[in-house]
Simulated assay, not measured.
Amino acid sequence: MTTEENALGYAWSAVQDAPVCELFPGIRLRPLWKGDNGAGAYVLEMDANTCWQGIDVHDPGPEEVFVVSGTFNDGDRDYPAGSFIHAPAGSSHVPQTTTGCTLFLFYPEG
């Protein structure tokens, strides 16, 4: 993870410089920032017609999702670009997309 920090504690990184981890075929995770308490910020890229393998359970804390582009589906409904989703701790879903999508993910508790 390439994250820079200044004297005031501000941290920043560029998506294109973040390492790519392929979680499943056509689904890539790019870490942007990791906090001391386990919090983390990521970009998730999903190609068209991809589906998470298994159930994504939010543990130990919640997941915050912002749909940057495309249409994301959580196994229940579609969320177009510009949508925000709060998934509480203990909830679960099956991330998928028919169009492809890019998501910003934030885990405040790891």
Rank of each mutant, 00 (worst) to 15 (best):
T2P: 06
T2H: 11
T2E: 14
T3M: 10
T3F: 05
A7Y: 04
L8V: 08
G9V: 07
G9L: 09
Y10G: 02
A11Y: 00
W12K: 08
S13D: 08
A14I: 03
A14S: 08
A18H: 07
F24N: 13
I27M: 13
R28D: 07
R28G: 02
R30Y: 03
L32K: 01
W33A: 13
W33H: 15
K34V: 02
K34S: 09
D36V: 05
D36W: 03
G38Q: 11
A39K: 02
G40N: 11
G40P: 05
G40T: 05
A41K: 05
V43P: 00
M46P: 00
D47P: 02
A48P: 01
T50W: 09
C51M: 09
W52G: 03
D56Q: 10
E63Y: 03
E63K: 04
V65K: 01
F66R: 02
F66W: 14
F66A: 01
F66N: 02
T71M: 05
T71A: 12
T71K: 04
F72Y: 15
F72R: 01
N73P: 05
G75Y: 07
D76E: 15
D76V: 12
D76L: 06
R77Q: 15
P80W: 08
P80M: 07
S83D: 07
F84Y: 15
A87S: 14
A87P: 00
P88A: 10
P88I: 06
G90D: 12
G90H: 08
S91N: 11
S91I: 02
S92V: 03
H93S: 06
H93N: 13
P95D: 04
Q96N: 12
T99R: 04
T102I: 00
T102H: 01
L103S: 04
F106M: 11
P108R: 11
